[in-house]
Write a protein that binds this DNA or RNA. Sequence first.
DNA 1: CAGTAGGCACTTTTT
DNA 2: GTGCCTACTG
Length: 821
Amino acid sequence: MPHSSGDHPPFPTRADADTRMGAAAVPARGGGSGIAARAQAAMRPAAAPAPYLNGLNPEQRLAVESLDGPVLVLAGAGTGKTRVLTTRIGHILASGRAYPSQILAVTFTNKAAREMKERVGQLIGEGAEGMPWLGTFHSICVKILRRHAELVGLKSGFSILDTDDQIRLIKQIIQAEGLDDKRWTARAFASLLDGWKNRGLTPDQVPEGEARAFANGRGRSLYEQYQERLSILNAADFGDLLLHVITLFKQHGDILKEYQRRFAYMLVDEYQDTNIAQYLFLRLLAQGNTNICCVGDDDQSIYGWRGAEVDNILRFEHDFPGARVIRLERNYRSTRHILAAASHLIAHNEGRLGKTLFTDVVDEAEEDMPVTVAAVWDSEEEARAIGDEVEALQAKGHSLESMAILVRASFQMREFEDRFVTLGVNYRVIGGPRFYERMEIRDAMAYFRCVVQPADDLAFERIVNTPKRGLGDASLKLVHAYARANRIPLMQAAQDLCHTEELRPKARNTLRNLLADFDRWRDQLASGMSHTDLAEIVLDESGYTEMWRADRSAEAPGRLDNLKELIRSMDEFESMTGFLEHVSLVMDRDGQAEGEKISLMTLHSAKGLEFDTVFLPGWEEGLFPHQRAVDESGRAGLEEERRLAYVGITRARRRAKIWFASNRRIHGMWQSTIPSRFLDELPADHVEVQEPSRSYGGYGGSGYGASRFDTSDPFQSSYSTPGWKRAQRAAGSGAAGGSGGGFAGRMGSDERRKTGGPRTIEGELVAKSVADEPSAFNIGERVFHLKFGYGAITGIEGNKLTIQFEKAGRKKVLDSFVERH
DNA sequence: CAGTAGGCACTTTTT
DNA sequence: GTGCCTACTG
């Protein structure tokens, strides 16, 4: 369908209005009933161009209308990506090209799936139910697998293991192999396994070298045993959901063909986050039908560490011959300063497709604010200063909802929480442990699983002695051995053992009672009791609720609340089984929106969100970019950190405020830090360096730190002057003053550490936390420390010193941060 | 078998 | 500094 350039306004006002109005912490919603009505109108036969296309800019429109063949939409931050996706679906439907059931639309998270469902629903004017194949990779794969489970060695009712179950299962296998489970931890193997599955590797496909590297060459055999156990348990882990489908497609061409035929159009959101397995899945389907549209932003790929392959998006044109690449570069979210800062920063990455974002967004209410960078003495002052700014903005009438603090690592959150509690500022932490990952919820779920699936060994193990019933290791070992010997589920083994003399009478009795309980609950469920009532009965009669009621700890009441909430949420499901399936796939819970609050989260969980004001604390070498990312992944790691910085800045609509501290407590020890290299990479024209506040120097301005600090770090003193960039570069090549640690070659090559010598790669600035040599200091020596001043050494462990400071009290510090006096 | 003390490690997180 | 896991002891 040819499109003329005259039938839409040059500047799409709708999306613009959306970003301007929304103060809420959610992506701008597109359209309302108006669009729905227009979409419906569009479905009537008419010669006029479909009205739902009206608000789109030329590139967006092209992306919506290029329906045939592979399309890659490179959508920069804030360029209306979701809108394109949903409108494209609407367009496919409205133009009568396919039925809703013929469209495969995959997202990464349940949240994204939900949002898309909602928006498509609005667009086409009907409930979300019309799109059975809109969902996450995992939920779609489960749907496919349930139909063909037998072909991959499962039964259709297979259960899905969560990470917890997975770890416990691996631990059992490692122990059964007689391996040292401290040297070869279950956690380590789990992540190895995860990596393999992310790459679509079945046990026989794991490269020899990698398989050998674990447990003295037994990696492959462990993987095989693990899969065998899963098959016996009739269970699959998250990785399997994709892997099994890939195997299924590869081994059964007829089935693959069926799905290729079924999916007339395929859409993929956040393509830069796909891993190899997901890529293979798409690739197999796209072999029969090339109408695949992937939307993503290579600059926002921040999940490489969990298997995402930026390469998937970088290689798209190669992988899908004849692909059309459409760039969305008009940004509807941020002011020019924010966009310029982000673009300039990300331009330092090499491995990218390259986009040039531009914007017309202006903040009329205030003068166009440059991105600000502010220096503070330590993390405490950072929290104090940001708290002050939050209150100042609030006083000017800005809502807390429009602000967010984005940190690199969750340990940074605590100080802000403390500060907000003190100030009485309402805050909300986004991310963190999910509802269904809480201990009490998992325990409760395990009870339910045992009722529904008597063969669910992992669930049974979890609750057999929770609450404490006196069924300890000894008794459990017997049950285990018996179950394994007879290849039967644990519960059945327990049943059998109750009729023998092997168990101690007390344990036997307890066990018999527990099994009788489960039998009774099963009967009740079978005889028509509602699953919510049963759930309540199970938790009460098992003594589980009582356990928490009797618990005196602070969390106990909250846990009881969570259990109530769990039971309440079961109402929405038809059966216990339906509920369990939902929970294993949808591990999140929305809600908690009440009240006006500032949001506190990691940079990772901020992706996809936007706020008027974004605070970005902790821009220091070692923390951001994180030392470990650089150490473990070299240049690639650094580039991913930079993308994270890009994501952080581009979350801001109006104000982006960056902070760095000169001192931070890491692993319980105070360390001097220097500003992040990312600060160097911001364009001076769009950045304003804030003068250090009066409190700079900490300790009530006693001054002993500040004066010393100024002279000891050339970069610091010059940061607030126009020549700050040059000054910092000078600091890079010259002496690093007393701030400790070698400062070798900022932005060096990505070569791994040279053999021998101290670790000084890529501007290693965080001192080593392990001692290579005995400390040069002695107990009793008088020393000087930048942050704490003078003190005497009272203890030494390697390079860690315990010092009694004259003003600051007793602290543990690294020896490289003090000097003799 | 259960409660407690010392040891260790500690980025990011979805399904 | 703190939380979590393990090993020891009552």
